[in-house]
Amino acid sequence: MMAAAKKFSPVWLTLPSLALFLVMLMTPLTLTLLLSFNEYDNMKGAVGGFTLDHYWKVISDGFYLEIFWRTLKIGLLTTLICVVVGVPEAYILSRMNRPWRSLFLMIVLTPLLVSVVVRTFGWSMLLGFEGPINQLFVALGWGKSRLLYTEGAVIAALVHVMLPFMIIPVWTSLQKLDPQVEQAALSFGASRLTAITRVVLPQIMPGILSGGLIVFGLAASSFAIPGLLGGRRLKMVATTVYDQYLHELNWPMGASIAVILLLANLVVMLTCHRVVEGQYRRRLG
């Protein structure tokens, strides 16, 4: 009796989160999935029934393909820049001494402390036609250029807010490293750079990959930043879903796009997960 109760206690303990998961995540997801198969009528909206038309339209219409392609591109570029900037930053951070380390960690985290709306309007002001950057360009004699409503603006703002999600996992795996292992590499005659590329980097690869996954997932499904900095023309998948729901009122179409985005994200995540499992499990545990 007691033993049985003990055995099942983990199940009881997960009940609250399980309930939350079912009610808050699975229910809307299932409803979205069902909705995506509904037929759509111009006058009446979703009218039930079953059709694969919306999915077909998304994968055959150049308009949607371009949006998906752009989303993939922006997601990958954001991830890449976050890796290139975030990994060295995390490394330097982990080498800092006491008072500075926590200070700079705080600075890294600040984008997360500012509301997305405030942060994004900050970027709009900075990049605007009359903004300080363009004024600097003028002062340098280059003339004004359109910075806002470009992919560059979206990527810059995404990198800004996603960096902490890259730095934290990398920093965590750096914390777990034995500093003597890097010293060992040096003692065997490796240069600083070789020690980093051959000894430090491979060990923090799982951290980089999980950071990359988080960044890619969040960037590919980001909504507010492309909405505010991409303008009407530069659509990403999440903003398109929004448009379908609220402007076109084509809910089934919006639902299909959302489902495809979810699936695409899942495929990327699972692929990376397989790589991590296969490559690093045996070595790093």
């Binding site: 010293q183 003692s187 000894v199 690093y280």
Partner: peptide
């Protein structure tokens, strides 16, 4: 610098390259 000394070292904690 340590990498210019050309010594062979066994660390107390071994410090093997885990990967």
């Amino acid at each position: 610098p340590a990498n210019s000394r050309g010594l062979g070292i066994v660390f107390q904690s071994y410090a093997l390259f885990p990967h």
